[in-house]
Amino acid sequence: MKKEDIEKIEEQMKLANEGLPEKERQLFSDARPTSVPPLNKYLEKFLNWGRAQSLWFLGFGTGCGAVELRPLMTSRFDISRYGIAGRPTPRQSGVFIIGGYASMKTVKRIVRSYEQMQGPKFVIALGSCTINGGMYYDSYNTINRIDHYIPVDVYIAGCMPRPEAIIAGFNKLKEKIKTGKADGMNKYAENFDWYKKNQKQIIKDWNMPDFNW
């Protein structure tokens, strides 16, 4: 392939960042997310073990399910004994818990927070509302399926799931991470256009860059 053709394709691959005003576009990167292949077999296995033993979830309550996260940290359920802790910044956290229904406004924040997290990152969808809409299935301002907008690793059904159910969900996630099946970050990068299309259908006032914060 000629050098000019490669440059042309690279130009097409760049993100438009159309939501931003012209003068702000240069402040943000226009690179797309790339899928990162796993390292060699044994090293990746070791790292997956380490990732499973230390899960930091983002302290962002996106719905009523967030109320079930508080008892997890206190003395009755004490989730820290499994190496799980809350983290108030998306840069350092690796697990995103979608706490129940996600309204149109919240989806925008969910996408922003999810994209700011550094991979490998995992998503736990809590409650029936994230699976099929639950009791808000016909609401005008909530979405029905969260996995149309970000990739989900573990679902916890129920309305509301008890803290025990959340601990069971975390243990399920740990198993998935150890076997290397929790690969939402690469899934998001590979199906980036599809996710963006779905997100932009819902979020009407898209005044943010397409990716990269």
């Binding site: 990162v36 070791f46 790292l47 997956n48 380490g50 990732r51 033993q53 230390s54 206190t74 003395s75 004490d78 820290s80 004994r81 190496g83 802790a85 840069r91 690796g94 550094q118 991979g119 490998p120 970050m185 914060w213």
Partner: peptide, 26 residues
């Protein structure tokens, strides 16, 4: 002191392994 069981004593080491195991970093 809080009346919890608490993380294992080697948790700081696991946190460091996890942080080094991140695939992308901004």
């Amino acid at each position: 002191v809080h009346g919890r069981y608490g993380p294992p004593i080697w948790q700081p080491f696991l946190d460091i392994i996890k942080s080094h195991g991140k695939r992308v970093s901004i």
